[in-house]
């Protein structure tokens, strides 16, 4: 099963995605961590996520860029968190944002289950500089491709999962 989980800041999407993984049949659980750790806030965020998923027995693979090169075992159960960081890293840290969608397709074929987390950052109506607009366009395209690839797309609204595509998985 391929699932895309979206939602706003602090809406509980990570927690829900982890519960979804926990409800899936046994398999090697792999957590693909994409966040660049560069300041106190990101250190705290990583620590919180690690503590949150500690009981799930994930092998963590760090992948700030170039998802295609990540060594993901065949038939594993993968939580990719998240597309927002991956796109930002590719775009602003010397990568190539265009390689994300093909890498997602390869990953989806490789693993048994794939849960991708993204973020709704599109609904504040703000005007931004050209590089931010370019990033938003790229991320939106990635989200749309990921949604097309997914069997289910779920928006988490303040801890409540709302199905946007497919039947809501039971967690």
């Amino acid at each position: 099963m391929i699932v895309l989980v979206t939602g706003g800041s602090g809406c509980g999407k990570s927690t829900w995605a982890e519960r979804l993984i926990a409800s899936m049949p046994e398999g090697q659980r792999v957590y693909i961590a994409t966040m660049q750790v560069y300041d106190e806030e990101s250190v705290r965020r990583v620590a919180r996520h690690r503590a949150q998923r500690a009981h799930l027995g994930f092998a963590t693979i760090e992948c700030e860029k170039n998802l295609a090169a990540a060594d993901i075992p065949q038939d594993s159960v993968v939580l990719l968190e998240d597309l927002v960081n991956l796109a930002a890293n590719e775009m602003f840290s010397g990568g190539d944002v265009r390689r994300i969608v093909p890498a997602l397709h390869d990953l989806a074929h490789r693993c048994r289950h794939l849960v991708m987390v993204t973020n709704d950052v599109f609904s504040d109506g703000g005007c931004y500089d050209e590089s931010t607009q370019e990033y938003l366009r790229a991320l939106a395209q990635i989200n749309r491709s990921a949604a097309a690839l997914a069997d289910c797309v779920v928006e988490v609204v303040y801890s409540i999962p709302v199905s946007l595509k497919g039947a809501l998985p039971c967690v």
């Binding site: 800041s9 602090g10 504040d124």
Partner: peptide
């Protein structure tokens, strides 16, 4: 709902959006 925009540059603004999310998760539950 205040969490569905571009992640703000200011740490305080980021923290505010996240705090509203966490609080509303509690209320929604």
């Amino acid at each position: 709902e205040v969490g569905a925009g571009v992640v703000p540059m200011e740490a305080q603004e980021r923290a505010f959006r996240e705090a509203v999310g966490r609080a509303l998760c509690v209320i929604a539950q």
